[in-house]
């Protein structure tokens, strides 16, 4: 199939960027979206052009490295699918596809489609952990965890930190990301002792990074390749209210 890609090209963080059109005459429906970019890059390299920079690694939808906005949708049109798992059969011959980096003031463009998502790491550093030094853990069966709680924790722990929620949010908010971590750890008995400090520190870090505020538009959960639900945001709010009221 023959496709036209219009890709955001930006040489560096401080450089101006623009959309540039490229023809890809030899696309194949069984290619992944990233393989399409590979094919384009091989050609650009041989033609002496600068290949398109994009983040990627595992290419099986779990590392969270890849992610671009395709035709206005984070990770493209297929639900619950990362960019690396999106295949060209979702598109038709002759399509014009717009490819842009994640947009948020907290995610500066590094080059082309590559952005700086270190803000998400700093949110985790602020409180997204349970403080247990190696070797100090009690026997695993000492604290049973009811299955529904373990399942909720797991569902939220599947977040891959790709940043699609931020990219999709019209407010550039990181609420879904932060709420997944708060819900994961605060719902477990192991996470209870640090419950209050955790949510306060995470919210504080999120605000400090310049992420926007949540207006409950729900765009995040639609874009999320792991389907983290809006309920997690309610849980974060609940934990935050509880922590703020309880601290005084």
């Amino acid at each position: 199939m023959k496709l036209t890609l219009r890709i955001w090209r930006q040489a560096g963080p401080a450089e101006p960027g623009r959309m540039v059109a490229y023809e890809v005459p030899d696309a194949n429906p069984d290619m992944s979206f990233l393989e399409l970019l590979d094919v384009l890059n091989e050609r650009l390299t041989l033609e002496g052009d600068d290949p398109v920079t994009f983040d990627h690694d595992c290419r099986e939808g779990i590392c969270g490295a890849c992610g671009v906005v395709i035709n206005g949708q984070a990770h493209g049109p297929r639900e619950r699918t990362t960019t690396c798992q999106l295949h060209m059969r979702e598109f038709s011959d002759g399509d014009v596809i717009d490819v842009e980096p994640w947009r948020s003031v907290a995610f500066g463009v590094v080059k082309d489609l590559m952005v700086d998502r270190s803000g998400l790491d700093r949110i985790i550093r602020a409180g997204g952990y349970i403080s247990v030094n190696t070797g100090s853990a009690p026997e695993a069966h000492a604290t049973p965890v009811p299955k529904p709680i373990a399942d909720t924790a797991f569902d939220n722990a599947t977040c891959i930190g790709c940043g699609a929620c931020v990219a999709a949010c019209p407010n550039g908010a990181a609420m879904l990301f932060a709420s997944a971590k708060v819900t994961h750890l605060n719902s477990l008995p192991q996470g209870a002792p640090e419950r209050t400090e955790r949510v306060l520190n995470i919210v504080e870090a999120m605000d400090a990074e310049g992420f926007g505020g949540c207006t409950n538009t729900g765009e995040c959960t639609v874009a999320c390749p792991k389907g983290i639900p809006m309920d997690s945001i309610a849980t974060l709010n609940r934990e935050y209210l509880r922590a703020s009221l309880g601290r005084k």
Binding site: R6, N71, E100, V105, G172, E219
Partner: peptide, 23 residues
């Protein structure tokens, strides 16, 4: 705050997934 957090719009108009009321 929200406008500051997303100063750059997407070149390809973002199709809202949420309902009209939210929009």
């Amino acid at each position: 705050r929200d406008l500051k957090a997303r100063p750059t719009k997407y070149a390809h108009h973002q199709r809202a997934q949420a309902g009209y009321a939210t929009h």
